[in-house]
């Protein structure tokens, strides 16, 4: 049995296939994220990029293929505090009012589990809120925040556990310019202290300088894995559609091109 070493990729998908409602969404995806790397997963709507990310953390079952996190098979993986997950959401609010701090603190549960939070836990939550620049809003209800601030809350929630790997599903969707800059700054700081990042993006945008490698998916297959396709121009990407991060809604689809 191979020994787990520090050179194991933090995420590795091998021959991953998955189906949603009988329709194949991933058709044999191989991808790896290495320690300290920032990898962007690009592709059009329906290309399978969200499914790829969600299958990597066990939220979509694979029909074949394998997933390894930190060198451990997904089925045996238990160290969830090493992962900070930012799901694709337009809101951080639930059916009952909750403050920014209350929502962010729930991210710390991967470390506290069933025990009571200690001083170090409360400090980690405060730091996470500070990282996304919401300290002055910490006691406000999340429902009073703007779209970009909701995204910042979701990211702070992921950072509260002080993870080594950040997995973000479209963190820039519907985010205003000011929040985009905050997010880019936050990410830069995480990378500076050695975090690895896998993020699903519609386009590289303000995060472009941070990204080491881009993986492009099309119809559930990897069509590009290498340096960010800047020479090409991101608009030439297969299936690129003109969604800009500051556009709040999805593009109007005519059905002819999609």
């Amino acid at each position: 049995m191979p020994q787990h070493t520090t050179t194991d990729p933090v995420i590795r998908l091998r021959g991953a296939t998955a189906a949603l409602g009988g329709r194949p969404v991933l058709r044999g995806v191989d991808l790896a994220v290495h320690r300290g790397e920032v990898v962007a997963l690009l592709g059009a709507n329906g290309s399978g990029k969200s499914t790829a990310v969600r299958s990597a953390i066990g939220q979509v079952p694979l029909t074949s293929g394998t997933v390894e996190l930190f060198g451990t098979e997904l089925r045996r993986f238990r160290q969830w505090a090493r992962i900070g997950y930012v799901p694709q959401r337009t809101t951080a609010a639930g059916g009952v009012p909750a403050t920014v701090r209350e929502v962010v603190a729930s991210g710390r549960l991967s470390r506290t589990k069933l025990r009571l939070p200690r001083k170090a836990d409360r400090e980690a939550v405060s730091r996470a809120i500070e990282l996304v620049g919401l300290t002055d809003r910490a006691r406000d209800s999340v429902s009073a925040l703007s779209g970009g601030q909701h995204q910042r809350v979701l990211i702070a929630r992921a950072l509260a556990a002080e993870p080594e790997l950040l997995i973000m599903d479209e963190p820039m969707a519907g985010v205003d310019l000011a929040s985009q800059e905050v997010l880019a700054h936050t990410l830069r700081e995480q990378v500076a202290v050695g975090a690895s990042v896998l993020l699903v993006l519609h386009e590289l945008g303000p995060l472009e300088p941070l990204i080491d490698r881009a993986i492009v998916l099309r119809d559930g297959c990897v069509t590009h894995d290498g340096p960010p396709p800047e020479a090409l121009g991101q608009h030439a990407l297969p299936g690129h559609d003109h969604v800009h991060p500051h556009a709040a809604s999805e593009p109007v689809r005519t059905g002819l091109l999609s």
Partner: peptide
């Protein structure tokens, strides 16, 4: 609040 997120925290 967020069931999917809670699953990824290992709860």
């Amino acid at each position: 609040q967020d069931e999917e997120f809670a699953r990824v925290t290992g709860l």
